[in-house]
Design a protein around this nucleic acid. Structure first.
Lengths: 342, 342
DNA sequence: GTTAGCACTCAACTTGATAGAGTGCTAATA
DNA sequence: TATTAGCACTCTATCAAGTTGAGTGCTAAC
């Protein structure tokens, strides 16, 4: 599609622009990159590249900046994806090892590490509890009116909720209910636990209807603890260092968006592809980030998709480095999470 | 100290400046507030007030803005503290009632409500778990190598942690340990649970030293779950609407500070006084917020200090309204938390 | 096909002029 | 003696005009 020289020039422009954030002129390219041709020639090539849509000009006498199409071509065809160095790997491992006791901490650490290494915003979408499997539930006493429901899933998630005891119910009765439920539900995905299963339990195990209706309510309550997945953010302040976000209005838009967890979750979900995916500018469906890029990797435990890690920043970002990092973090996180599984 | 007219003029200037964020001139005051004197007289008074340090001038021909000393005098002597309206009270109650099932949600909601009502950043410092009293602990099985430790405190906090089972220990033995510990520790403040108490338990209850050493380790581990208190933030994006934070550098400073949870905790702790306290500009010890003000209220359960709620914003803030709100939230939150206590 | 040379364009910066808000001072007034 | 009208003065903000410099596109020569 593009001849070798055009590719080299496009690559040079993107490289330079990514690090300087300034439009790149023909002289700059000629000086910095030894292409063996004069600025005039490069100018001609740049004009071609602009005509083809790979470059843009802010005004007639400015240098060029890469267009979304340019970045796309770069990511697809020009990118040298540098792998993580031994050094960086050790660094990452060390950052993790200190805590990583509770599964939530693993996700939070992951977000922090990614933003620290990329100088961009990182998003880590943790597994939906509803996609894990129920292991068991247990009631713990709290006071006369209330008990704590603890639910444990096989991915090591522990969730608790305080609920009111249905009037007239003893703690022993609740425990009987828990036992029955555990027998019936162990190993089922939390998604698949529906009223139908409850009805079955009711028929099989518990004759006292009044108690059971209340218990069912209780369980339903507990199961809705946290069906929506959890999102961990890192490095939101990094944006302020990027020249493209000097404008307070742009800043505000992004920060407001970052407060809308549900929206972010939806954005991260909107991807069927496997592995590391790059969305550049308008390729993002949410218009609020139409001049941002997002690099996103889906992670899995034993092949099952359970979450996503992503980097969000200006389209001018170090795609190669970020993709390599996410690739690495994706598998590293997978390993870490395996430990939390039986 | 200041005669009546000077007080009125100072108050008028602060009122106007708080709402407009523009320097206030003598004509504006004469027009808006019916003081019965001409702008010239007001000018003379303003010059006096400036000499006394209550006002500042950005340049010779600009209007005046309040100085830190001016705000201080305003807060101490001029402020009319409007009380919360019935309407607002209902609004707040409604915002709460929807969730408020888990204690963490109460704090998060509180932060959100405060920022929504004040258009400033809110900080809610939740009780240190170490200042609550231990109610009981329980081990829940997870897999061969690990168990879940659940700790319940009398303020309704539930915390869990996954720990490794000491080699050679059965789950039944762990449960025996838990029973012994619960007998011994119930009602003690988590702070006061030290090795000495463990040693006592060891002597009294558990003969097997190897197991106990391991168990002790386990408990210690679990008790360090979360000694540091938790901080909930609200409305960080509100700052972007304040004209004093149009400058990206200022913005960055604040946002970076807001990411440092420990620092924020320290700042909030640095206050012995009771009730609602206002710190204006340089009165804040941390220099990063030296041109901000902070209104802060300590809340308590049955007289015991357990946390702080605060509002952070530019010195130009609606002190009266914010103080009244915090006063209300302080007692409201106290009530809500009582429900979580036995 | 490549390149030197040159005219041209445009943003960014500088300068100077102007308007407007607000002050301080002085002298007249109540 | 306190207040006020009047006026000169100061400073910022804004706008237009001019200047600089980076970079381009085009053309003609190599």
């Amino acid at each position: 599609m593009l001849d070798d020289r055009k590719r080299k020039i496009l690559q040079a422009i993107i490289n330079d622009y990514v690090s300087t954030a300034e439009p790149i002129g023909s002289r700059t390219i000629a000086r910095k990159y030894d292409l063996g041709v004069s600025p005039a020639t490069i100018r001609n090539e740049m004009a071609d590249l602009e005509l083809l849509g790979y470059l843009e000009q802010l005004h007639t006498s400015s240098g060029r900046i890469p267009s979304a199409k340019g970045y796309r071509f770069y990511v697809d065809s020009l990118l040298s994806r540098p792998s993580i160095t031994e050094n960086e790997m050790n660094l990452i491992s060390n950052w993790y090892s200190a805590k990583a006791r509770r599964i939530e901490e693993v996700f939070q650490e992951t977000a922090r590490i990614i933003s620290r290494m990329t100088h961009n915003i990182s998003l880590v979408l943790a597994p939906q509890i509803s996609q894990s499997n129920f292991r068991y539930m247990q009631f713990l006493p709290l006071d006369e009116q209330r008990v704590i429901v603890v639910i444990v899933t096989d991915s090591g998630f522990v969730e608790n909720k305080i609920i009111d005891i249905p009037p007239g119910t003893t703690f022993e009765e609740l425990q009987r209910v828990a036992l029955a439920i555990n027998n019936k539900l162990a190993g089922l995905s939390i998604d698949s636990i529906k009223s139908s299963v409850f009805r079955e339990i009711k028929r099989d195990v518990i004759p006292d209807t009044a108690l059971f209706e209340a218990a069912l309510d209780v369980i339903n309550n507990a199961l809705t603890i946290d069906k929506k997945e959890k999102l961990y953010l890192g490095g939101t302040t990094q944006l302020l260092n990027q020249p493209e976000f000097r404008d307070v209005e742009k800043m505000k838009n992004i920060l407001l968006m970052l407060e809308e967890e549900q929206l972010l979750c939806d954005i991260l979900h909107d991807q069927d592809a496997e592995g590391v995916v790059v969305k550049i500018g308008h390729e993002n469906k949410y218009s609020g980030i139409k001049d941002c890029s997002m690099v996103q990797a889906t992670y899995r435990i034993d092949g099952q998709v359970i979450g996503t890690i992503a980097v969000l920043g200006p389209t001018r970002m170090e795609y190669g480095k970020i993709m390599a990092l996410l690739e690495f973090m994706h598998s590293h996180l997978g390993e870490l999470l395996k430990k939390f599984k039986m």
